[in-house]
Design a protein around this nucleic acid. Structure first.
Lengths: 336, 336
DNA sequence: TTGAAAGCGCTAACAA
DNA sequence: TTGTTAGCGCTTTCAA
């Protein structure tokens, strides 16, 4: 592997000069530049990024921590980030924590080691610890939709309002007996969607943390998952055959509902309607196409990258939050 | 930011000793170790990964170059890689080229800069150039299913055989008039699936590169995409109303076919059957669930990571190929 | 316009 | 068992 010193030797110049042509900084005569370029080509030289990062104190890489690569939501966000980052000369490093607390911590521990210039956290379960860990070492950070009751996200949406809009539509369609496939309890955005459901059903008096005690309610836990969406739908309809509509806390579980209904030849939306939340790509592919709340996934990713880069470049202060709230829109397809 | 030198000063020890307790190499007395640990905690010290990488000449990161994060196939592979890498203490860095030649080259150019210890290329369009670029700098490499006519992949499947198996099943089901939704021409695995189709239809004499001249054949270009799957199916059925089955070169386009058929109230599989290829997660979610050829996606990802790490660690030689061919299996669901 | 030299923060001999 | 020192390959003053 050729180093900058080899180029210096080959051309008879000093390493400083080589560095200058490599970075187009300072003055270099045309003649010298060419001589250097020739040597670079001849020796197949590529600068060593690690050494450069050490000297410059930046790597031009941003780290993105996600909970599950196979959740269709995630690649959407990631490609928004990746595109925007690339546009500004940065590279994205994706890190998957598989919803495991332990991995989330390990991951942030390795990000502390300065291999990245900044970090984007996507729906972290415990944003607050991670945040303080990273700010200890002064790493710029952007949080998309954190999962804790308190704390601020830089990029987010109005989950409550979105869910309410979905339910409003269900009511407009004439549905009165509406069941709910809930997400994992304790996660902020999961709870907000549940809250909207309770309010829309006129159960404002019920606190979300006591909901599991009201087993007579048409609510079943589906944990944002497809497979649990199937079983939860089954449970729901057995306990509540009177339901004419199911609102799922996310698309994946809504797809589970759709799957169950199709298997049991229950017509959608004629017998039971279904509404989801997220608008993942698959939502439009299933039959009937899923009516759902659209999140501008790609745009949210791009915006988070833009904000992070501003913080990295010192345009925006690291700690001062100014949340961007993205618009949700109801996409009326065929399932409700 | 505290450095190793600060810890040395704080404890009154030499930097070598600090390094030793950090890496658990060589002898360190229990007492010293504790003193160091205390100082680390006190000063909130985290070792600088870049400096370490420069000194050790390895970063413990592997780069994974993919063409499209939003293709469900990709996250499947990536999570296999990520899991296996993590198990061995490595971190995965995902890079998206969006099917763009230019990005593919830029990406490899940055990987040349030694920020990673090895590279996995997923279905690269031009594996050969990338390969030589990386081997110039001695970077270990694993290729999953390259897209060129000649060249070897380390991890692959028998596309021809898989497609043939799918067609055999269609024939067994009594279908004789079978249409084909083709992938992008010129890609090795795309062409192999087409070849199998032609052979199964007893059109062995037709060369794949002249296929577009035979416009009377029940073949339409769907380019592995959902939206083109819809329009291609429409075109196909208009020209060939006699078809009773459609074989799609991949699941995404098969889903497009399914979508078209549902929209036009054409019963699947009674009136027209559909078979796909890949077995992406969505395949089992649609209605009717898609009969398709299953690729062990996760396993292939894990295997490629294992192989790469063996090459990085010098257990396996860098250049000597010994391709692993994974088994494809026909998954009979409801669409055929 | 170019060269020399001092780091960047860490690891790994080698001495002590 | 610990300390010292010479790199790793590059950038960046400061002189020349």
């Amino acid at each position: 592997m050729a180093t900058i010193r080899d180029i210096a030797k080959e051309t008879g110049l000093g390493v400083g000069t080589i560095s200058r042509v490599l970075n187009s900084t300072g003055y270099v005569s045309q003649e010298t530049r060419e001589k250097v370029m020739d040597a670079i080509k001849k020796l197949q030289y590529t600068p060593n990024g690690v050494a450069r990062a050490l000297a410059k104190k930046r790597t031009m890489i941003i780290g993105v921590v996600v909970h599950d690569l196979t959740n269709p939501f995630v690649p959407g966000i990631a490609s928004g980030i990746s595109d925007e980052a690339r546009r500004q000369g940065y590279t994205m490093m994706l890190l998957d924590t598989l919803w495991q607390m332990e991995h989330e911590l390990n991951t942030v521990e390795m990000l502390r080691q300065q291999l990245v210039d900044g970090v984007i956290l996507l729906s972290p379960a415990n944003a607050n610890v991670l945040k303080s860990k990273l700010s200890e070492v002064g790493l710029p950070l952007v949080v998309i939709d954190h999962g804790e009751a308190i704390g601020t996200s830089d990029i987010t949406v109005d989950h409550y309002k979105g869910a309410m809009e979905a339910l409003q539509w269900a009511l407009e369609c004439g549905h009165r007996r509406i069941g709910f496939l809930a997400g994992p309890p304790g996660l902020r955005f999961s709870d907000l969607r549940l809250r909207a459901y309770l309010d829309a059903m006129n159960w404002q008096h019920l606190a979300i943390d006591t909901i599991d005690r009201h087993s007579q309610l048409p609510i079943a836990q589906a944990d944002f998952r497809f497979d649990k969406g199937i079983s939860a739908t089954e449970a729901l309809l057995q306990r509540h055959p009177e339901l004419t509509c199911i609102f799922a806390a996310n698309d994946l579980s809504a797809l589970g509902a759709l799957h169950y209904l199709a298997e049991h030849k229950i017509a959608v939306p004629e017998e039971v309607a279904v509404i989801g939340f997220d608008d993942i790509p698959t939502a439009s592919l299933v039959h009937p196409p899923l009516t759902t709340i659209h999140q501008p996934i790609y745009e949210m990713g791009a915006a988070s990258a833009r904000l992070l880069l501003e913080r990295i470049q010192g345009v925006k202060p690291l700690e001062q939050p100014e949340p961007q709230i993205f618009e949700l829109t109801l996409i009326k397809r065929k399932s409700c």
